[in-house]
Design a protein around this nucleic acid. Structure first.
Lengths: 134, 134
DNA sequence: CCTTGACCTTCCTGTAACTGGAAGCATTAT
DNA sequence: ATAATGCTTCCAGTTACAGGAAGGTCAAGG
């Protein structure tokens, strides 16, 4: 199977698949004409990668997960550790974004958004005087 | 005032300040010895930038906001537009992350995390069979 | 006067994970 | 035969800096 079909089946852009080969996440064989030839195992790996990436795992984490996936003697604790760490990072990022969101939402709500130059958003940015709680 | 003091006062790394000059967000004067010399206006701009960046605005949005900030004849509607768009993007990102988080949390919870190789996380990644609700 | 250390300068490289595009074979369709 | 895809490699660009090398400047101490 050529890269175009592999892309269609996995939902990954061909460019991305080439990149994954370049960084050795997958190693498809080559046909005589030089084209990459993807077998079922390659497709499974690509699907696995697509899903792991969709859950926000970094490439390096994906590499680890893929290695664990292929290691019959793995301990699920190792997998869980990677996932748990990532989950914590997601939670941290969500918390950060929520804080941003709240501050920004206050500023936006306070802004009239009309033709006049007076603007609480700019005022807030030039000196976050809002309500420095605590 | 030299870059070190400007960095200390604004909380921005000197590297970042040089970068902001390079991309023309600020244009501090130079002393005779070639050192950058920051005036109060420069410091205000840097503080403004630091806060806007902390709220997640991109550099290009910061550039626009800074221009509006310095434009006495601005309409607050223009500022609000930029902020509102950014707010929407933050909300979208939060929603994405929450979806990720929920999926991942389910997988993590289902995983025993012991010495055995059986792992719902890997199973989930190889074929998200969880509960594809509707 | 000289040296040491802190501070400043520019320039180059690297980051994450791709995306876009150019130049050039291979294959397929007309 | 030719034109349209599809494949190949390689190079550049993206975001917002961070790290580090090589070297000029300045204040303090001996």
């Amino acid at each position: 199977m050529n890269i175009g079909q592999a892309a269609a089946k996995t939902g990954l852009p061909a460019k991305t698949i080439r990149y994954y080969e370049e960084i050795a996440l997958i190693t498809p064989h080559r046909a005589e004409n030089g084209y990459r030839s993807f077998c079922d195992t390659d497709l499974h790996k690509l699907t696995f990668l697509a899903r792991a990436r969709a859950l926000g795992f970094s490439i390096e984490n994906c590499r680890m997960l893929l290695a664990l996936y292929q290691d019959e003697g793995r301990a699920s604790a190792d997998v869980k550790q990677v996932a748990q760490d990532h989950l914590s990072q997601i939670d941290a990022k969500i918390a950060d974004l929520k804080a941003m969101r709240d501050t920004l939402a206050h500023l936006v709500n306070a802004c009239a958004g009309d033709h006049r130059p007076d603007c609480p958003i700019l005022n807030g940015l030039s000196a976050l005087a809002g309500a420095p709680a605590k």
